[in-house]
Write a protein that binds this DNA or RNA. Structure first.
Lengths: 208, 208
DNA sequence: GTACCTATGTGATAAAAGTTACAAATTGTG
DNA sequence: CACAATTTGTAACTTTTATCACATAGGTAC
């Protein structure tokens, strides 16, 4: 496992990785699993070894809103931020590609901040980058209409999968953006007419 | 100054407050001043001693979107999060009531994390509570229509000033929510008809 | 007082987004 | 192949929000 972690989390010191191996466990989940629900107690800090997770905000009436992806080499900022207090999760996490996760018990998360400089820097950097990502999400919904929000959404998915072929149905996009499928279908058609993409069943091919 | 800080930041240890007094400077700003603009370099971590600051997100076409208040006893999470890297500000800060600010040079911010347990806990807690506040803001724009967003906005202002008389013009509210004045005037009228508030020139009296 | 500025009220209209209803196309299954 | 389930396309309509135009009201300066 040492080499696997070293490769993905290249900033981690050897002693930190040793500590992770001694104290953390690896858990696997399958695509489609919901591994964290809003309101659940957080017991671990989560590092992603492989696979892909989508993080959502939920509202009271069952609405979902896509926030960001969790990918190999990344950690869940929410699970770090809740470390000290015995907090419940403010988000919902859905597995979209089978994942292997390193589960670090919360008390260690806090303890390592003082013991491992590379852990401290990783945690702070995770906070910072997620905070900035969430601010960009705020921009998109506060300032932009649905057509631009859709483009922003597609762009982020392109970045996340490093490919131009997005395996998404119109309904899934609509759910992620908390709007209706018809709206997305119409806007996608417009983007296709503009030559920005090509529509297929169950996937979207980005051209620009 | 020691007692002033001790009273507002009650969790700070004496040695931390001594370090603050030795290394930080107090700066004053007046209502209306913009003390931080988007894209400016951050040189200090900011603690608020008195007064009130509104934090905004800006877009390219001059739009503003109100994020949250900074108040006495609080610190600017953005200015902390940018500490390590030499980052620029992602937000704009407007003084709404004359403020006294403690300016801590960025290198110290990072150094104190290891030296003062009470500083470490304060910083982590500031991250956490701001992150959660921003997530609530996301909820309000992702899931709610303008009438509910307005109510959420008024409620937050009520909490921030601890009073029921909000000194706000319709135009200011519209700017903060990135919409138009007419929309706000009409929605406020509806709220008045429902008995939720009473409208006056330049201020709004909350009844519920 | 009058002139002027700012804040608020309101109607008419346009544009964007959400809803309803249903058709057509594609895929999977027995 | 027949049939069901899923995905996508689209028209008609409603609701919400934005924009334009202008009226009115309160406060300030002279």
């Amino acid at each position: 496992m040492h080499d696997h972690i070293k490769k993905l989390f290249s900033s981690f010191s050897s002693s930190l990785i040793d500590d992770i191996e001694k104290n953390a466990v690896v858990q696997e989940f399958n695509a489609g699993d919901v591994i964290m629900r809003t309101g659940q107690y957080i017991k671990n800090t989560v590092l992603v070894l492989s696979g892909k997770i989508k993080i959502y905000r939920e509202d009271d009436d069952g609405g979902e809103f896509f926030m960001y992806y969790l990918q190999p080499g990344q950690a869940c900022a929410i699970s770090m931020i809740c470390a000290t207090k015995n907090e419940t999760s403010q988000i919902m996490a859905k597995v979209v590609e089978d994942v292997e996760l390193v589960m670090v018990p919360l008390p260690l998360m806090d303890k390592w901040m003082m013991q491992h400089r590379s852990w401290y820097e990783f945690v702070i950097d995770t906070y910072r980058s997620r905070f900035e990502e969430v601010l960009e999400v705020v921009d998109s919904i506060a300032f932009r209409a649905m057509d631009e929000r859709l483009e922003f959404y597609l762009m982020r998915h392109k970045d996340a999968c490093s490919c131009v072929d997005l395996k998404l149905s119109h309904q899934e996009i609509a759910t992620d953006l908390n709007t209706s499928r018809e709206v997305i279908s119409r806007l996608l058609k417009k983007l296709e007419q503009r030559g920005a993409l090509k529509l297929h069943r169950n996937h979207i091919e980005l051209l620009k």
